[in-house]
Write a protein that binds this DNA or RNA. Structure first.
Length: 423
RNA sequence: GGAGAGGUGGCUGAGUGGUCGAAAGCGGCGGUCUCGAAAACCGUUGUGGCGCUUGCGUCACCGUGGGUUCGAAUCCCACCCUCUCCGCCA
């Protein structure tokens, strides 16, 4: 969330940021009006509490001196009644402020292009060339059927559509990619590997910004008020919630594999065939906690770490800077990475790398001290997929397919797969 | 799931209705001493909100949320978490 003081003193800038992001500015108006009433009531009730503290001490002294304090007690009875009423009022305004605050998105960085939906996204980098074929490349679902790598029908039977049953080489490819990516990030890029819970509570979900806005896009367990994580960003970023770190702890780099769950209401239909859009998928995630002044450099290196995965696998990709209308709620700036899939003839998003600045840190209470005795400051948090599996698998299958329907295994994962070719 | 114990500041730990934002110890920081260090001694050392102002005032915070009371770390209720034992179990 944004700093209340900042919103109070820069309402116009916040409003413009929200408009650029297609956010409903009603939340800003709600905040501003609740904030004003809140401060008015707060000043009043604080005065009464000061009086009560004062007289209470006097009562205590009188009692010890065995004097009669009943007049003071009687007076304070009334004051306490007023405090009770005012406290309730303060709480109402506070709740209003808080819920409005939780719906105000991060401010897009000034380098982010203004645009609605994704029409303002800019390709800022390309690597490799979309592969040319001297035969008609098949989509991955045909290859998967031929090679027995994925059983879409039985996955749907077990759970529902969008839940994938990987079989034989399909299952092993999934595991090999996860292992290789984790090894790459830990050994080459300096990340610490962790394995987090897959369920997270409401507090954690609010900390990273999924709640309240996206509560109903998530699978949830109402009995326990728990949620299946849509990304390990949620759990990784909450590792240090409500803590004050030492400056020397930073930067902290975490990487984790996790399954990810997304309900995405109304997802069925076009562009959802095969592995393109599923409800449960695997992903290796990267999260950074950094000094505020370093976060923009850290976004570049984070994105390069994700690109290294694609380059290692020899997959042509492009990097996009997302526009204000396409950027996520918590992000100040986001790069998407897309890889070319010749079978379906599409660029597929496999990674989204974001600098969330202090937005999540403020929500989740993640701070650090520059030195002994210094005031705590909010860290900056970043997250990026490194990378998401299903579309990566699509691109590998479709790019490395041979005329006979077999698939050459990219060199970097051959030792994990134990084979050079899937047939 | 059942029974019990417990959650207090960076840590250990005292505090069962009023002078308690909280003893004491450890740790940290500053100083005295010393060529320097250690020891010893002295001082200092939580977070956030609001208001005026850059220094002060004030409020809140002892797991979380309610309640009782003139007054709650302390009493009552609910919930969460940790530990021990039992049950179940990969």
């Amino acid at each position: 969330m944004l700093e209340p003081k900042f919103i109070r003193t820069n309402p116009d800038a916040v409003r413009q940021g929200m408009i650029n992001q297609k956010s409903d500015t009603i939340h800003l108006d709600d905040f501003l009006s609740a904030d004003e009433s809140w401060r008015k009531a707060l000043i009043e009730v604080d005065k009464l509490k000061a009086l009560r503290n004062d007289v209470s001490e006097k009562i205590s002294q009188m009692k010890r001196a065995k004097e009669d304090a009943s007049a003071e007690i009687e007076r304070m009875r009334e004051v306490s009644e007023q405090i009770k009423v005012l406290d309730a009022e303060v709480k109402v305004f506070e709740d209003k402020m808080q819920s409005a605050l939780l719906m105000i998105p991060n401010m897009p960085d000034s380098s982010v292009p203004v645009g609605f939906n994704d029409e303002g996204n800019i390709v800022v980098k390309t690597w490799g060339e979309p592969k040319e074929f001297d035969f008609q490349p098949l989509p991955h679902w045909d290859l998967a059927a031929k090679l027995g790598m994925i059983d879409f029908e039985r996955g749907a039977k077990i759970t529902g559509s969008g839940f994938i049953l990987y079989t034989k080489w399909g299952a092993k490819l999934e595991r090999s990619l996860i292992n290789w990516m984790l090894d790459l990030h830990t050994s080459k890029h300096g990340y610490t590997e962790v394995f987090t819970p897959i369920l997270a509570n409401r507090n954690s979900m609010t900390g990273t910004g999924q709640i309240p806005k996206l509560e109903f896009d998530m699978y949830r367990l109402p009995e326990d008020d728990l949620f299946l994580i849509p990304t390990a960003e949620t759990t990784l970023t909450n590792i240090y919630s409500q803590e004050i770190l030492d400056s020397s702890d930073l930067p902290i780099y975490f990487t984790a594999y996790s399954p990810c769950f997304r309900r995405e209401a109304g997802a069925a239909g076009k562009d959802t065939r095969g592995l393109l859009r599923v409800h449960e998928f695997n992903k290796v995630e990267m999260v950074k906690y950094v000094h505020p002044e370093k976060s923009w450099d850290e976004l570049e290196s984070l994105t390069e770490n994700a690109e290294d995965v694609l380059e290692g696998l020899g997959l042509a990709y492009r990097r996009l800077t997302l526009d204000t209308g396409d950027i996520s709620f918590a992000s100040a700036k986001t790069y998407d990475l897309e890889i070319w899939a010749p079978g379906v003839g599409k660029w597929l998003e496999v990674s989204s790398c974001s600098n969330c600045t202090d937005f999540q840190a403020r929500r989740a209470g993640i701070r650090f001290r520059r030195e002994q005795g210094a005031k705590p400051e909010f860290v900056h948090t970043l997250n990026g997929s490194g990378v998401a599996l299903p579309r990566l698998v699509v691109a590998i299958m479709e790019n490395y397919q041979q005329p006979d329907g077999s698939i050459i295994v990219p060199e970097v994962i051959r030792s994990y797969m134990g084979t050079d070719v899937i047939r």
